[in-house]
Design a protein around this nucleic acid. Structure first.
Lengths: 230, 230
DNA sequence: TAGTGGTCTAGACCACTCA
DNA sequence: GAGTGGTCTAGACCACTAT
């Protein structure tokens, strides 16, 4: 193995930051100096520095040089999985049940979230996701028929709308909102719990190429925890 | 501007995925072909492809070629800010109040989280974060004195432990857990709400260079929403 | 074993921005 | 104006792995 790849250089730089050799706010040497120090090409140093800058540890400015970020912005990254895979990753057997499904006109709030016209139709699907036969999460979903007409012929009893959309829609952008909410009558019944129980919820709206696809709200069974690394 | 920088190439490739020209699961052309097609060096194409692979849209294998990911893994990225900045970004005036602070032996559960010995001392700080004079979030924090002894001399009335640690500890790794929980007596009182109210909570444990720094649990006032983009 | 991506190099030019 | 990072190039060799 070469002694100094962009990877080992990045790690070395990270430890120089962690150890305080490059203190918060400090200007660090220019790329050409570092290339000389590490005995490699400037492009290699550049790649390592860019990677650290992407992570938010460094701020780089032309002419201004590179500085260690004073208040490094930290990110928590959550994988947004297909719920079936999530349940299976937890070691349980997954299945789902459609509680309600109907084609209807959109309500005002859904129209706003999906940027729809009054005349547009939406497919409303309520799904209960289950792990080992017990309620895991309750999903309320609205789908823009105009964007994915094929959903009307999808075997949603076999494959949940969640999974079908992930597999059929090429790529999408989305908003996510996490919050806590007390269970209402509907969600309490679906999740076999009491009204008022604190539930972890995720709302997600997705679109692709400027067309709105779907919006959903997911209520997790009480006690659910979403874990991640900084 | 050059017609084909790694950036414009990446965007073009993304639209080819979104449009379905490169369908889910398909193998896409090799780097040399793409370089010819875009009229640029292979390194430039490589940079664009790597960026898309980092995003989880492509899977690349030597000899195997590059494929469009069948189940693109989507990530939600949340910024973990200093609470003061978070409150100020919402347009409110921030201040904080220390409700309790004491040096003590660690309890078993905290020892486990911070990987401490029975003899190690921890600083326990309970802080109320406020926006425009109203409760915003309640924080329970335990700090490993051995890792950051300077915390004992920090003016925690002026600068919250949260902010002090972010500014003084060079860089840290961490675990994060999001969940929903019903307010207990202590949290309900601190947040001026009722017992049982659904609260959004964040637990965070951080360490740097294999030394555990701090662990905390944050209870947000009811109605709080954490927003992000996919 | 051969094809593909992973990475490095040396040099070049450009774009930004600080002084 | 000059220093710094941003990016591209053409070529090279290496590492992995599908066949």
């Amino acid at each position: 193995m070469r002694p100094h790849t962009h990877n080992t250089i990045r790690e070395n730089m990270l430890s120089r930051i962690q150890s305080g050799e490059w203190a918060l706010g400090d200007k660090i040497p220019v790329e050409t100096s570092l290339a000389q120090e590490y005995g490699c090409a400037r492009a290699t140093v550049n790649r390592a520095l860019q990677s650290l800058a992407d992570q938010g540890l460094l701020i780089r400015k032309r002419k201004g040089g590179t500085r260690v970020c004073k208040l490094p912005v930290r990110y928590a990254k959550f994988e947004i999985p297909v719920i079936r895979e999530h349940v299976e990753a937890l070691g349980s057997v997954y299945h789902h049940k459609i509680l309600d499904m109907k084609l209807s006109s959109s309500t005002a709030s859904i129209r706003e979230r999906l940027r729809l016209d009054t005349k547009d139709k939406v497919l409303r699907v309520d799904t209960l996701h289950m792990a080992d036969g017990h309620a895991f999460a309750y999903e309320e979903r609205w789908i823009n028929i105009a964007a994915v007409p094929a959903i009307l012929n999808a075997p949603l009893e076999q494959i949940s709308a969640n999974e079908w959309l992930v597999k059929e829609v090429p790529f999408s952008n989305g908003d996510v909102i996490f919050s806590a909410i007390g269970a209402d009558k509907t969600t309490a019944k679906a999740l076999e719990t009491h009204i008022g129980t604190a539930l972890f919820t995720v709302e997600r709206t997705t679109w692709s190429l400027d067309e709105f696809i779907t919006t959903m709200k997911l209520y997790y069974k009480e006690g659910y925890q979403l874990r991640s690394r900084l």
